[in-house]
Simulated scan of single mutants.
Amino acid sequence: LTFVAGATVMSSMPPMTLPEVAFCGRSNVGKSSIINALTLSTTARSSDKPGMTQQFNFYVLPRRLMMVDMPGYGFAFANEQKMAGWKVLIDQYIQTRKMKRVFLIIDGRHGVKQNDKDFMQRLDDARVSFQIILTKCDLV
């Protein structure tokens, strides 16, 4: 797994030259950790502090797949203006990029929250195929 780019605006996102999958969910549900687990890597930076992924992070599995670690939604240690900017960028991303799949990460300790339901509706509205993955089930 290789880090390719960090993007805070659409124009700084790399071109789609490989199939692309994205990992999204509330802050601190384990998006970066699941990327590392799936790729047997430690390339994606993870933290136990909500809101540490503050840009779209693009990783590549050479000649196979682009993986995108998206900023979380919900509570984060970031100001409201920055979080509002993430929401706009997330909406632009899901409406314009043609991902193969979005993986919606849900913390098994808390289940599906209203902001998860709202995000699922945004994905449905954009006609984006998504799959739910439960994390942290071992902590229940």
Results as ranks from 00 to 15, higher is better:
C24F: 03
D138G: 04
P62I: 05
P71E: 07
Q95Y: 13
R109M: 06
V9P: 02
M99A: 13
V21A: 07
F103H: 11
R64D: 10
L65R: 07
L123E: 03
E80K: 14
P62S: 13
D91Y: 09
K31D: 08
E80M: 12
D48L: 12
S11L: 10
L1K: 02
V29N: 07
M52P: 09
T8W: 09
T43R: 12
Y59V: 02
C137F: 03
N79K: 11
V128I: 12
R63M: 04
K117M: 13
T8K: 14
V68Q: 08
R26C: 01
V68Y: 02
D107R: 01
L61Q: 08
V140T: 06
N115I: 14
A126K: 07
C137A: 11
G108A: 14
G74Q: 01
M16E: 15
F77D: 08
Y93W: 09
V112K: 03
V102H: 03
I94H: 08
P15V: 12
F103Y: 15
P71Q: 02
R109A: 07
S27V: 06
Q92G: 01
D125Y: 02
D91V: 07
S46D: 03
T8F: 15
A22T: 04
F58V: 05
N79Y: 11
M16G: 09
M83C: 06
G25A: 06
L104W: 04
D138E: 02
R122E: 10
V21E: 11
G30T: 01
Q55W: 02
V9S: 12
I133G: 12
M67V: 07
A5I: 07
V112P: 03
D69H: 05
K31C: 10
R97Y: 03
R109I: 09
R122V: 00
